[in-house]
């Protein structure tokens, strides 16, 4: 299919991009890697009147350590995130997630900011950002602001970004000493997750001292699993972790679609949480059989 007609402008600075978007009105959209927006346009499910190409804005690209957090520019590709040495400790989760997005072409063109702004509940990065308590930074004509990931994703394909605002990047706490894992369950290698589980775990000699769980495709937005996280605290054995994982059923009923019923999604989430936590903890005795 061929997209409906649209206008195209290429911005040479962030300010220019913001002005172009404002002038373009409510149907103007920023274009980064194009790997979320263009497929929708080709199906004519998205019909922007204007695309403002921000792909040339180098100031939005790159990964930088900043104290006890890491700042990632919106235009950083998944491939670049996957290879970023700055992502240590718990923040290493992002690299693991980015490594498994789509296929090599997608990872070389698709961007972190684009994935975040698209707010697809089946995308992998949002759940990981949620688990890491990341902040999303936004720029508008009125200035810049930060929004916690937990407040940024407000519904399926809906975010806290206002019309005319551009996602400029994310800031992620490093969480030195924490381990991480992402367990993604899909039918084909390149599919979106039927369920994905992001786990960051602080494993100590006495067991799990802290854990954060982010869930992909278990609701209209990426979700945290607070009941599971609370139940994980202090656990050190496989049976305890399985019991803690079962608390995922306390969350709101997940969606049903052609890939999975709600019931199966809950079951999968439980299995995958246990596996992800065991992997993140790095404790061999807890690995699944």
């Amino acid at each position: 299919m061929i997209p409906a007609s649209f206008d195209y402008e290429r911005a040479s600075s962030l300010d220019e991009a913001l002005n172009m978007l404002a002038a373009g009105g409510e149907d103007a959209r920023p274009l980064a890697g194009g790997h979320s927006l263009l497929p929708l346009m080709r199906l004519r499910l998205a019909r922007p009147s204007l695309l403002v190409d921000i792909g040339g804005l180098d100031e939005l690209r790159g990964v930088h350590a900043d104290g006890d957090s890491v700042v990632i520019g919106a235009l950083t590709t998944h491939h670049e995130v996957a290879g970023a040495s700055e992502l240590t400790g718990g923040s290493g989760l992002l690299a693991k997630v980015a490594e498994g997005i789509g296929d090599p072409q997608v990872r070389h063109r698709g961007t972190l900011g684009g994935s975040v702004a698209h707010a697809d509940p089946a995308s992998d990065l949002p759940a990981a950002l949620l688990a890491l308590d990341a902040e999303v930074t936004l720029a508008g004509r009125g200035g810049t602001r930060s929004v916690a990931a937990a407040d940024f994703f407000v519904g399926p394909f809906m975010s806290a970004a206002a019309d005319g605002e551009i996602v400029t990047g994310v800031r992620v706490p490093t969480r030195e000493g924490w381990g991480s894992a992402y367990r993604k369950f899909q039918r084909r290698a390149q599919d979106w997750a039927i369920v994905g589980v992001a786990a960051v775990v602080n494993w100590t000699e006495s067991g799990i001292a802290g854990a954060a769980i982010g869930l992909t495709n278990m609701g209209g937005t990426p979700l945290r699993a607070p009941g599971v996280e609370a139940a994980l605290a202090g656990t050190s054995e496989k049976a305890q972790i399985l019991a803690a994982a079962s608390k995922v059923s306390e969350l709101e009923t997940p969606p049903a679609d052609e890939n999975a019923s709600s019931e199966y999604r809950v079951h999968l989430a439980q299995v995958l949480i246990a596996r992800a936590v065991a992997e993140a903890a790095g404790c061999p005795g807890m690995q699944p059989g």
């Binding site: 199906l43 084909r188 290698a189 390149q190 052609e258 890939n259």
Partner: peptide
């Protein structure tokens, strides 16, 4: 319902 390769699951060599 399976109106594209997103949900009509044609496998690739990876499978």
């Amino acid at each position: 319902e399976t109106s594209s390769m997103v949900n009509y699951l044609v496998p690739s060599a990876a499978e």
